[in-house]
Nucleic acid binder design. Structure first.
Lengths: 194, 194
DNA sequence: ACTGGTATTAGTACCAAGTGCTAAAACAGA
DNA sequence: TCTGTTTTAGCACTTGGTACTAATACCAGT
């Protein structure tokens, strides 16, 4: 196992080792590569790899940020840019890296659904609006960088049944990428508020 | 600001301070509370709070785990607890405050949709799985604190059309809260991988 | 074989942020 | 005043380093 590698090989391996396990000390690395601790330190210097404690701190800090970041599936998904209560509404949603499958770069369906669903809730002029049922179609893949424009149009409100029916169409560059029908529950009929 | 607190008060505050910012040194704490470093150390001992480096390491370790998990599982809303590829899968999702409308405490529909949609993607044993269409029904409101158990059952796979049809049922305490049918696109038929 | 340059090792002093231990003060209540 | 708790001080030691100097070792070219 302890066949002496060249400096370059060792440094490459060093990078990989630390990448994989940032918690390893110089001492352990020295033993692993069969060189002195000083050599490891020279290597780290050349590769500008920080010392153990700094590495650990970086990991800790980086992930403390992530915790804050992982909450954004929160209020309204997308930004509402136009709304006429109980009639129609438009929102835009900029697709970012975190919304797509890293494997193929295509947006996860539930983000498009979330934008449409949020918009339906928003367009209803009522204290309580809940989604009862929906039929949706994902027509064309959406990718990071795309700006999704979603329009919700109220088709019908049935006051006896406390229901509102909404049609939703999402487009990217004027091409339809998503369509849906939403049946929403509401406590009061339109215009009956307050 | 430097009104001397009682030992108990100080220790309570110490706990909160460190909880909120694990990166604080004994020195800084001593200054903050207007006591000596030794006092802080006694306090930490009594409260069995580990030293700075250990705390940082804990954060780093905890989050490194999360990171590893968040590659496969960040892709999924909810935690998959059982899966038989191309057949069935079960995930659980604990509804928290951030998932509900603050107005009425009811979970936003798109979170339930996201859990179901994620599960459908996961159950498909294929490199590429995309949602094409779905019909969903929100049967009963879900609230913060509820644990949603979602089962996805593959109904049919049509290899010529590259489609898989999946039925999803979500329950809270054995009561159905959500139902859905998902039509998924896949590149290959089941069992054709590699 | 001699010289030079790179690579490696050794050794020292120093640092941060501690632990562990002992001992002296300070304070508080009966 | 005595007693017990709380706080402070001081010192030796630990880890995992940095910064720096100096000595070797190795390898190639002439």
């Amino acid at each position: 196992m302890l066949i002496k590698k060249s400096k370059k090989e060792r440094q490459q391996l060093l990078l990989e080792t630390i990448e994989e396990n940032p918690f390893v000390t110089d001492e352990q690395l020295a033993t692993k590569f069969g060189v002195s601790v000083q050599t490891i330190r020279l290597d780290r210097m050349e590769l500008s790899i920080p010392e153990l404690r700094e590495r650990i701190k970086d990991v800790a800090e980086r992930n403390l940020e992530n915790e804050v970041k992982s909450l954004p599936i929160n209020e309204v998904i997308g930004e509402i840019i136009d709304i006429e209560l109980d009639k129609r509404a438009i929102s835009i949603f900029d697709v970012k890296e975190e919304h797509v499958f890293q494997r193929n770069g295509i947006a996860r369906g539930h983000h498009l659904f979330a934008q449409a669903n949020s918009l339906c809730v928003a367009v209803i002029n009522d204290e309580l609006a809940l989604t009862v049922r929906s039929n949706v179609v994902f027509i064309k893949p959406v990718r990071a960088g795309d700006r999704v424009v979603t329009k919700a149009i109220v088709r019908e409100t049935n006051t006896e049944k406390n229901r509102t029916y909404i049609d939703v169409i999402s487009t990217v560059n004027n091409e339809t990428v998503f369509k849906g029908e939403f049946e929403m529950y509401r406590t009061k009929g339109e215009g009956e508020q307050k």
